[in-house]
């Protein structure tokens, strides 16, 4: 298994409160990895560590064996794109203008806009299914349309590694399926995808590598059939469940066996 991106005994904390403790993990190349865990378990933090947006209190995040903190931000941005959970859309911006901003790391002071930028932006908008929205104001879009515009922006950044924080939130079920299919297609074409996801069954279907976080640790990491087990569900979510094969893909599917519960 080849990998470029790796966490080596990484701990993270906010204002002294520990969130992740001593995590070691590799993110396999060209693979769609899903990060899962309960609310507040540190999924976003893990993604931000990988993207260099949060500095670890201990350990190293390595890209090609080099600490990401030692890379120039612009160089890192040509390898890793990250879509945060809550990006901001400037008031009055149009879809194409927003997607174009994904090209920043490929531009210089004297070459602000090139044919390559144009091609990348058009391809990204087509892939994310927002080409026909190009001239719309972002503020007039539905939540799902907006989410796809953000996806287009990080696709336009055209990086081999893509980090996405809950990209399926706000999408209806049909668009969720479409986005998951897009992400697995991108990984099949060689891109490394790391996405925080909530729907375990969906992740099992589309992602080939799952990482389960709980208590600041990686409880399980591996293929869906290795990770999605009743014991893992109990450990991560304190949920009793039975695991059955998905009737369509035969990947593991979680069926909660409790109808009511006290946390």
């Amino acid at each position: 298994m080849n990998y470029r991106l790796q966490l080596d005994r990484v701990s993270a904390a906010y204002e002294g409160v520990s969130v992740l403790k001593d995590i070691s993990l590799v993110l396999p190349d060209g693979v769609f990895t899903a990060i899962m865990g309960a609310n507040g378990s540190g999924k976003s933090t893990l993604l931000k560590l990988l993207g260099g947006a949060v500095a670890p209190v201990a350990g190293k995040i390595l890209l090609d064996g080099k600490p990401v903190s030692a890379l120039r931000p612009r160089h890192l941005a040509r390898d890793i794109a990250m879509l945060p959970q809550f990006p901001l859309a400037p008031d009055g911006i149009r879809v194409a203008e927003l997607v174009m901003r994904g090209r920043f790391p490929h531009q210089t002071m004297f070459r602000q806009w090139s044919a390559a930028d144009r091609t990348a932006v058009d391809a990204a908008m087509a892939q994310a299914g927002v080409a026909d929205l190009a001239h719309r104001l972002v503020s007039t879009l539905s939540g799902g349309q907006r989410q796809r515009v953000w996806i287009a922006l990080v696709l336009a950044q055209d990086t081999p590694i893509l980090l996405l924080d809950e990209p399926t939130s706000f999408l209806d079920i049909a668009y969720q399926v479409e986005l998951m299919a897009l992400l697995s297609e991108l990984s099949e074409r060689g891109r490394t995808i790391v996405a925080v996801l909530h729907d375990i069954n969906q992740a099992s279907r589309h992602a080939s590598h799952l990482v389960m976080l709980a208590g600041g640790q990686v409880i399980a990491a591996g293929r869906p059939d290795e990770v999605v087990r009743a014991e893992t569900m109990r450990a991560v979510f304190r949920l009793e469940s039975v695991i059955v094969p998905d009737p369509v893909t035969f990947t593991p599917m979680v069926v909660p066996s409790e109808l009511r519960r006290n946390r």
């Binding site: 890192l76 941005a77 794109a81 990250m82 531009q107």
Partner: peptide, 19 residues
């Protein structure tokens, strides 16, 4: 150009390579 990135929030700006 950096301010254009900053407008998208600090997390996204950083991911675009803006310190």
């Amino acid at each position: 150009p950096r301010l254009n990135a900053i407008a998208l929030g600090n997390d996204l700006a950083r991911s675009l390579g803006v310190g």
